[in-house]
């Protein structure tokens, strides 16, 4: 391992959160979600009740295809960029740089959970307000198209993005794999493939929309994995303690 480069005079403790980037993340996600919601408000009841109508194809299937194209493109670009621009000298960054990068990671995590909120809370419960009220005639309903194939891929994009950011730019995550981080990203990611179980089950047993039905519990168990973010923060905090240690402070090992 080489020696870290010299400490700069800039006060690294200022502006760590990056209020501007957090505000941008917050408002861009908010605007996207509101746009989806408004689209549903306008077109769901009018054009989304019968999947065999030509207009259903126009307003809903086209939205689905557009989402898929945008999502695959965005994932390729964002994840590719993160890997392509990885720090090849990640073990020799300055403590200041590492501190700042931790806050960038946290900004990524903020984007991740902000979208998780929209998916798991807002649009997931909205799905109840649709399916308990209408006759389900396709897997691609106006609520599913937005929830499963729109919002969920967005949080997968951000979740995997945050993981790749840490893996390519932060020494302790580059050195070894964080199991809680893997769980916290992979678990919610698996909710998307779990749609397969859901739809398969709906063609079999559950013709009515009982939300507490066992067929939905795959989502539940995978949702629990989000708690592993706790483990991730317990990995980040001791490192933060080391990175912010004062000379006169006790230097005990803060790890578990």
């Amino acid at each position: 391992m080489g020696e870290p480069t010299e400490i700069t005079d800039v006060d690294v403790s200022k502006g760590l959160v990056g209020a501007k980037r957090i505000a941008i993340i917050f408002f861009v996600v908010l605007a996207t979600m509101v746009a989806w919601r408004v689209y549903q408000q306008v077109f769901a009841w009018e054009k989304g009740l019968d999947s065999f109508e030509a207009e259903f194809d126009v307003y809903w299937m086209n939205l689905l295809y557009t989402q898929w194209i945008l999502e695959f493109t965005a994932a390729a670009v964002v994840w590719g960029y993160l890997i392509k621009t990885r720090d090849k000298d990640v073990f020799n960054i300055t403590p200041q740089e590492e501190l700042q990068r931790h806050f960038t990671l946290i900004a990524w995590l903020f984007a991740y959970v902000w979208i998780v909120y929209w998916a798991a809370s807002f649009f997931a419960e909205q799905d109840a307000s649709w399916h308990q009220v209408t006759v389900r005639d396709t897997d691609f309903t106006p609520s599913h198209i937005v929830l499963f194939y729109g919002v969920m891929p967005c949080y997968i994009l951000a979740g995997v993005g945050s993981f790749l950011y840490a893996r390519t730019r932060l020494p302790q995550f580059a050195k070894r794999l964080s199991i809680p981080f893997v769980i916290a990203v992979l678990g919610p990611f698996m909710i998307l493939p779990n749609v397969g179980l859901n739809e398969w089950g709906h063609t079999f047993w559950f013709m009515e929309e009982l939300f507490a039905a066992p067929i939905h519990w795959g989502f539940v168990v995978l949702g629990w994995t989000a708690l592993a973010l706790g483990g991730l923060f317990l990995q980040i905090i001791p490192r933060m303690v080391q990175l912010t240690q004062l000379e006169e402070e006790l230097t005990e090992d803060m790890n578990d």
């Binding site: 009740l49 019968d50 030509a54 006759v135 396709t138």
Partner: peptide
């Protein structure tokens, strides 16, 4: 589509 669309039912019964 509105100009050319043939009349169809409107509540998803056709998927059954």
């Amino acid at each position: 589509v509105a100009v050319y669309a043939a009349p169809v039912m409107a509540h998803g019964e056709k998927s059954q």
